[in-house]
Nucleic acid binder design. Structure first.
Lengths: 391, 391
DNA sequence: ACCTATTTTTGAAACGTTTGTTTCTTAAAT
DNA sequence: ATTTAAGAAACAAACGTTTCAAAAATAGGT
């Protein structure tokens, strides 16, 4: 990245006609004014829908405006209004790949909304990746320069970044799926306890009594919320929980595989080098759950693989449900039953709030409404299970 | 998105002090000049590393510059230089989710490089999602306004967008994994024939003779390139190909599952409602490949699931190799052997070229160097296979 | 010493907006 | 008819840079 020489030496005439192109010089507000026989101030007023322009003039200017295909120069406008017309979406470099992918989905939604809102709003969203351990981070720089009008952050923000934000009065909103929300920040939250409750209730409603849970201990807030929902559903359905079937080693898909393995081997961790057949035998001899709830689709994918590796069929022997509805969920074999989380909703709630604040208003945190289970192929009602199951 | 009122009425004093914040007014180039007892022109020259400033003055100005923590106002600079200091990365809305995820990975690499290049280069990258069927798209608008200094596009660009780009002399580079490159455009390519050849050769080198291929017919260019590489490897290893084991229905992971099913049932498509057991029996009776090469990891995931659904073990009965090395590849059970494609390399090659062109230079297309197979757990040498295999 | 080249430095005019203030219309009220 | 007030439109000064053209300082010959 060294050779990024961004200087342009004596390039006025050159840049005016852009490299080798005809590059029709774009019409300025003054051109329009001249064409209408009116002052540039007036044109500016109609552009910004201000009071005090007669209807006749307004109409005339508007006509010329779009017959000329006029487009504002954002730099000039921003120079005067002290805005950058950019919001920044920050993702922690350290976030898990699966999380990043999800966050990107949200950013994509924002970008789409923004570009379809043209030319009403000319904002753009720029993704920023920030490491947890940088002392003076790139983001603080942007903030102090006034290069950002607002930030959307996933998971949370480092204290010094928050300091910079507050210091410059730059609004920000946190989209924090599964993280504890800083009460001072406006944030868009997901009720994972509820989601977990719904998923588990759904499984229970199908007659399953032996249900395992695979969560993510690495995120304590998320872990306890989901576990709480799971237990509540169990309790309300008169089911008893089994300690060894509540697993949380999973901090990534690899961990989920391990969790599943332990569940199937009755909590005994497979010895290094233990023969596959032996491990399997061990598993089949003991008790196993007829359904497992994973707090993320990706966990379910791994867990399903492991179960099959042990010789169980999905869903005939063991049912699986996840949360997220990642794109693969419907393509996998068998398609995964899951509760969707809508990136579009998250994006809309967050952007609505951010723009309200950019416009000088206030905004309150919100918890997005939970959605319902999407029934696919990874779940089988207890009564239709292939073989009888004895705990 | 309606309520995005971006006007600020009579907000001069308000915006000067930013909402409720102390918001230290950032130092301008004139402030620095005054502090050094020098003109603003001189400061500008040292900022931009221009000729004709004496070393003494240059040093003095530089000292003040960073003791004051000066940061350029990008809007003012851009207004004068006719640059936006933003490049746009465009992704087709219609691209497959898996592709989008990969493209995002590349954009993430770009964003990281850009933010770590601060404050040398102050560029930012903004993702744009563009639909194939929009007539006058958002991108053309950006281009005509001079709101973008360059674009990176994945897969390709619509003719009218290319027209706008050429018209305004805005440089662009195409990152087109698996798409036919427009010879007039500078593009960063991947040699999928080579990748396919390497993967297949690797499998063959392990003693496998019955190798199946699952490709992506929806992308004809990609499909024929990969198939060519596959066949070449077969030929060079003295292996004969089987028509029914070269499958290309796969245009998404779902299709890959279908392809695998057909391979296992000897090309007979399973009847709607055919009993699972029956399907399985059908499969086991006939011939099956001992290894399958999938042109994308995601295909391999589905194919592996199907194979296991049919009762085959991976890799003991059937080996799998993919291309991409998506993050999940190493977490799946068993971890997938694959050839990686480096998003970082793609990002660097593309950005290097784009910036060269932005700086007025020329750039040539390039094919990035192919990488080697990463050996994981989804492949088993022919000789170690669990059961003897009879075709 | 002076005149000329050369190197440094500076003044000031842009770039395309927004917006506070002033000026001009026009109509209503006296 | 004259004054007043409101409403429209225009002027012109910013915003923070870059860069042309010109001035000032320095150095290099005679």
């Amino acid at each position: 990245m060294s050779g990024y020489d961004v200087s342009n030496n004596g390039a006025n005439s050159e840049s005016n006609a852009r490299r080798g192109g005809k590059g029709a010089a774009p019409a300025t507000i003054r051109d329009i004014a001249r064409l209408c026989g009116v002052s540039s101030a007036t044109v500016s007023y109609v552009l910004n829908d201000k009071y005090g322009v007669s209807d006749a003039v307004r109409a005339r200017v508007k006509a010329v405006l779009d017959s000329e295909g006029y487009a504002q120069n954002l730099r000039a406008k921003g120079l005067k209004t002290r805005r950058s017309y950019a919001v920044h979406a920050v993702i922690r470099k350290e976030a898990a790949p699966a999380c990043k992918a999800f966050y990107f989905g949200v950013i994509a939604c924002i970008a789409e909304r923004l570009s379809s809102a043209l030319p009403e709003s000319t904002y753009s969203v720029v993704p920023v990746f920030q490491s947890d351990d940088e002392s003076d981070d790139t983001l603080s720089g942007l903030i102090r320069n006034g290069d950002t009008d607002g930030v959307i952050a996933f998971q949370g923000l480092m204290p010094n970044t928050v300091g910079a934000l507050e210091g410059q009065g730059v609004p920000y909103v946190i989209i924090n799926p599964g993280f504890e929300a800083d009460p001072r920040a406006v944030s868009v939250k997901i009720d994972f306890e509820e989601l977990s409750y719904r998923a588990t209730s759904y499984i229970a409603s199908l007659g399953h009594a032996d249900i395992a849970f695979i969560g993510m201990r690495r995120l304590p807030f998320f872990f306890s919320a989901t576990k709480r929902g799971f237990r509540r559903a169990l309790r309300e359905n008169g089911l008893t929980e089994r300690r060894e079937w509540i697993r949380g080693e999973a901090d990534c898909a690899e961990g989920a595989a391990d969790a599943m393995r332990r569940i199937l081997t009755g909590g005994i961790k497979a010895e290094r080098g233990m023969a596959r057949e032996q491990e399997r035998g061990m598993a089949r001899a003991g008790a196993y759950p007829t359904a497992v709830f994973c707090t993320q689709d990706n966990f379910a994918f791994s867990a399903m693989s492991v179960a099959r590796g042990f010789g169980y069929r999905v869903p005939e022997d063991i049912s699986f449900v996840g949360i997220d509805d990642v794109p693969e969920a419907k393509y996998i074999e068998p398609a995964l039953t899951t509760i969707p989380i809508s990136p579009q909703t998250l994006a809309d709630e967050a952007m609505g709030r951010l723009f309200a604040m950019i416009d000088g208003g206030q905004a309150k945190s919100v918890t997005v409404e939970s959605m319902d289970v999407i029934e696919r192929k990874s779940v089988c009602p207890r009564e239709y299970m292939a073989t009888s199951h004895a705990v």
